[in-house]
Design a protein around this nucleic acid. Structure first.
Lengths: 211, 211
DNA sequence: TAGATTGTTAATCGATTAACAATC
DNA sequence: TAGATTGTTAATCGATTAACAATC
């Protein structure tokens, strides 16, 4: 397989979302031009992006929505199953555990861990909250493909390092830090404060324009 | 001011974070080469990025950490105050309300709104949870610079449209949809499921390599 | 067949990196 | 002054858009 640029990957989930909507509306066919108008990107980019992975369309016709949806899902790895553990069972951890859509897409939260004795034992959508001291044993005894880190940066860094040593290969990191785990590990960051700063930047810029 | 590329803006919060760390460690001076090594980006890129906004360094010396930190903060609009309202007081909304770091950076959560009668009246870090029916009156009576949308996509879209009509100019959108508000409004999206798909893509790709 | 739309090549545009003169 | 490192120009690289032949 050719090397796919990061920019293309970033766009795939958005295509997937629009196709899902078309699909649930019962639309069976879409052209790059139509998608282009809906998504506010060029038709050319859509065709280029998709052709990184193969010819999913038909000349003179367009794309079959259901088929394209499934294919993009496969590219994104959504045809497989992933067991996820959430470390840090505060509001953010529980928000993720509660988020139902994941399950439909092959991602199952199998446990949450926390050090706060007051919430240990609580039932959540992702199962019972366990004591963080049991985390490494749990990892050893269960297949866990993804660990979500929803705890402060210092403990997140420390625990991520130990989890890497225990063989965890993929982290979904919400801590406001780069984990610095080096090679052999996959990390996807969600840095909320950085997202918010992008917004304050835009606000600030738009205010400068006005005055 | 010249037009700054989106890629540059995306990198600013990360510079800001590293400078904050250096600063809190008492480091007073840093060169683009040192930052480059820490952040795993090229020194050339750092210098190019910063020079979009002016010459913050000194030849032969480097950059003063504190000064550069403050300047980037100003660029990001963090020298101003923002009042934020959170619509949707579930776990995600409350996670944001609880997140203390915002306050230091000029962002204050002044209220949360929800339609769930069971939680209305509850006290949170962002104040009391109010009935969503009071939202528009609240917006009229209070200066609100940012509205965070932490509720399902259909109500999010609907409420965002109404809030735009009530003069809200900036949205921090956590709903899994594009709000489609058109011009005159600033939107920053946090699409958690899309972030997770990027991770499943990486996992899936790495598994294909192995086998 | 005529019309439509893809797949793909070529052209353009923009972003990143390299290089070095300016200067602290 | 010599050494270091920025600010900035030029070169390279990559991504996006345009164009069109292939073909359904």
């Amino acid at each position: 397989m050719e090397k796919i640029s990061k920019a293309v990957i970033e766009r795939l989930p958005r295509y997937y979302r629009y196709l899902d909507e078309l699909r649930s509306k019962g639309v069976s066919r879409v052209s790059s031009k139509e998608l282009s108008a809906m998504m506010h990107v060029t038709a050319s980019q859509i065709r280029q992006d998709l052709n990184n992975f193969g010819g999913f369309g038909q000349q003179g016709y367009g794309y079959k929505v259901e088929y394209l949806y499934d294919e993009i899902g496969k590219i994104l790895g959504l045809d497989k199953k992933y067991r996820m553990v959430i470390v840090g069972a505060g509001n953010l951890g529980r928000a993720i555990a509660n988020y139902g859509n994941f399950k439909n897409r092959g991602i199952e939260v199998i446990s949450l861990f926390d050090q706060n004795k007051e919430i240990i034992g609580m039932e959540t959508a992702g199962g019972k909250i366990r004591d963080i001291s049991e985390l490494f044993d749990f990892i050893k005894e269960n297949k866990v493909e993804i660990v979500a880190l929803t705890l402060p940066k210092e403990p997140a860094k420390k625990i991520a390092k130990q989890l890497k040593e225990h063989g965890v290969k993929a982290f979904w990191n919400f801590a406001h830090t780069d984990l610095g785990l080096g090679d052999g590990v996959l990390v996807e960051n969600v840095h909320l404060s950085e997202s918010l700063m992008k917004l304050t930047y835009k606000i600030s810029k738009s205010q400068n324009k006005e005055s």
